[in-house]
Simulated assay, not measured.
Amino acid sequence: MARPKLDRRDLLLLGGAIGIGALVSFVLRRGRDLGVDVGDNAIAQSVLHDSDSPRLRAPNADLIAVVFTDYLCPVCKVSAPALARAVADDGRVTLIYRDWPVFGEPAVAAARTALAAVPQGIYPALHTRLMAERRRLDPPVLRQAVEAAGGDWPWLLSVLESGGRVIDQRLARNAADARGLGLAGTPSMLIGPLLVQGALDETALKRAFAQARQLQISR
Rank of each mutant, 00 (worst) to 15 (best):
P74D: 05
V47R: 14
L200A: 13
R3E: 05
L6Y: 00
R55A: 10
I167P: 10
N60R: 12
Y123L: 03
S25P: 01
R85Y: 00
T94Q: 09
G104F: 04
R219S: 03
R207T: 13
E147K: 08
L190N: 04
P81E: 05
P59N: 15
V87P: 03
A116G: 08
L157K: 10
M189F: 00
A176I: 09
A88C: 00
I167D: 11
V24N: 10
D10R: 00
T186P: 03
D7W: 04
A210S: 15
L115N: 01
T113S: 02
D62T: 12
V38T: 06
P101N: 04
S51M: 15
L28T: 12
I43R: 02
P81N: 04
R207D: 13
L63N: 08
A125H: 07
I217M: 06
E147L: 11
S51P: 13
P187M: 03
V36Y: 14
A116Q: 10
N60M: 11
G163P: 08
V36L: 15
G182R: 04
T128M: 05
A210L: 15
D40S: 08
G163Q: 12
V75M: 01
A17M: 14
L63M: 10
A42V: 15
D62Q: 10
G163V: 08
Y97D: 06
G164Q: 10
D52P: 08
V159F: 04
A208T: 04
V38P: 06
L195T: 11
A176D: 13
I217K: 13
G198M: 01
P187H: 00
A132W: 03
T94E: 09
V24C: 01
R9I: 12
R143D: 14
M189G: 05
Y123R: 02
V36P: 12
R136G: 14
E202S: 10
G104P: 08
P4F: 12
L190P: 05
D168Q: 06
T94W: 12
L215E: 05
R213Q: 06
A80Y: 09
E161T: 01
D138Y: 09
P54F: 06
L72F: 02
I122H: 13
Y71V: 02
L28I: 00
L13Q: 15
A82Q: 09
